[in-house]
Amino acid sequence: NITNLCPFDEVFNATRFASVYAWNRKRISNCVADYSVLYNFAPFFAFKCYGVSPTKLNDLCFTNVYADSFVIRGNEVSQIAPGQTGNIADYNYKLPDDFTGCVIAWNSNKLDSKVGGNYNYLYRLFRKSNLKPFERDISTEIYQAGNKPCNGVAGFNCYFPLRSYGFRPTYGVGHQPYRVVVLSFELLHAPATVCGPKKST
């Protein structure tokens, strides 16, 4: 009989979020998941679920829940969905086509923008091939755009693969920082350890 609540607040209220190319993952297990707390949290810009209804989450049990978190621009949030393409979905964070879970995003301009620009948040701009679902690539190898080998030196046709967002408070909404948490639900042939409040007695 599990009684402790799942530590969703640790994920959602973290002081610093990860850059999207180096997205953070927390495994959540052996706890009671009260999703209504999240669902009623006012400032969400997006709360979209795939393969599961957000209002039914509290009735369900899962083997594991993974909480992935990172920061992207407002106009990139739409790429955090199954079957998407674009710089983020291709080179930074890719969801599987059969994704079961929820994508939760909110504007973090007050936290993550600075006058003069916040350059701490990076994304991958160049990559030889697209990421596989949930693949994480933190390499900083110089990207070779031409035929000539770069030998690890940036220059003509040789690019550092990461780019900084440089968030400023005055940017338009599409270019403002958004914090994103992706909850993915794993249902294995194993005992369920993460259940909603109704199922955990």
Rank of each mutant, 00 (worst) to 15 (best):
T3V: 07
T3P: 08
T3Q: 10
T3D: 09
T3C: 05
N4M: 08
N4C: 08
L5P: 14
L5S: 11
L5W: 09
C6S: 06
C6I: 02
P7A: 10
P7N: 14
P7E: 11
F8R: 00
E10N: 06
E10K: 10
A14R: 07
A14Y: 02
T15V: 06
R16M: 09
F17Q: 03
F17W: 15
A18E: 09
A18G: 09
A18Q: 08
A18F: 04
A18D: 08
S19C: 06
S19Q: 05
S19I: 00
S19N: 09
V20Q: 03
A22S: 11
N24K: 15
R25C: 02
R27V: 14
N30M: 02
N30G: 08
C31R: 06
V32C: 10
A33I: 14
A33T: 07
D34Y: 02
S36P: 04
V37G: 09
V37A: 14
V37F: 15
L38C: 03
Y39P: 07
A42H: 08
A42F: 08
P43K: 09
P43I: 03
P43S: 07
F44D: 13
F44Q: 11
F44H: 12
F45R: 14
C49R: 00
Y50F: 08
Y50G: 01
V52N: 02
V52K: 02
P54Q: 11
T55G: 14
L57N: 03
N58Y: 06
D59Y: 09
L60P: 04
L60F: 08
L60K: 11
C61P: 09
T63C: 07
T63Q: 10
T63F: 05
N64L: 07
V65K: 01
Y66V: 10
D68N: 01
F70Y: 01
F70R: 01
R73M: 14
R73T: 08
N75E: 13
V77Q: 04
V77T: 06
S78E: 13
S78T: 09
Q79Y: 01
I80K: 02
I80F: 01
P82S: 02
P82T: 02
G83S: 07
G83I: 03
G83L: 08
Q84L: 03
Q84A: 15
Q84C: 06
T85Y: 06
N87D: 11
A89Q: 01
D90W: 04
D90T: 06
Y91S: 05
N92P: 03
L95E: 00
L95C: 01
L95H: 00
L95G: 00
P96Q: 01
P96L: 00
P96A: 06
D97W: 07
D98I: 05
D98P: 06
D98N: 14
F99S: 00
G101P: 00
C102M: 02
I104Y: 10
A105Q: 02
A105T: 08
A105V: 08
W106D: 00
W106I: 07
S108G: 05
S108F: 02
S108C: 05
S108R: 01
N109D: 10
N109W: 06
K110M: 09
L111F: 10
L111P: 06
S113R: 03
K114E: 14
K114C: 09
V115N: 14
V115K: 14
V115R: 13
G116K: 11
G116D: 14
G117W: 05
Y119S: 14
Y119H: 15
Y119I: 11
N120T: 11
N120G: 12
Y121T: 05
L122H: 15
L122F: 13
L125V: 15
F126E: 14
R127F: 02
R127L: 03
R127C: 05
K128A: 11
S129I: 08
L131F: 03
K132M: 10
K132R: 12
P133E: 06
F134D: 07
F134M: 08
F134E: 07
E135K: 05
D137T: 02
I138G: 08
I138M: 13
I138A: 12
S139Q: 09
S139C: 07
T140A: 11
I142N: 08
I142F: 10
I142H: 09
Y143E: 13
Y143M: 10
Q144C: 06
Q144A: 12
G146D: 11
G146I: 05
N147D: 15
K148G: 11
K148I: 12
P149W: 08
N151T: 13
N151W: 09
N151D: 14
G152I: 06
G152P: 08
G152M: 08
V153S: 15
A154E: 14
A154P: 14
G155F: 06
N157G: 14
N157C: 08
C158Y: 05
F160S: 15
F160D: 14
L162T: 05
L162W: 02
L162Q: 03
R163E: 13
R163N: 10
S164A: 12
G166T: 13
F167N: 05
F167M: 03
F167G: 04
R168M: 11
R168E: 15
T170W: 13
T170A: 12
Y171R: 12
G172E: 14
G172D: 15
V173I: 14
G174S: 11
H175N: 15
H175D: 15
H175F: 13
Q176S: 05
Q176V: 02
Q176N: 05
Q176I: 01
P177R: 01
Y178C: 11
V182L: 01
S184M: 07
S184T: 15
F185H: 00
E186W: 09
L187C: 13
L187V: 12
A190D: 13
P191Q: 11
A192P: 12
T193L: 10
T193N: 13
T193Y: 10
G196T: 11
G196W: 08
K198R: 13
K198N: 15
K199D: 13
K199G: 14
K199H: 12
S200K: 13
T201R: 14
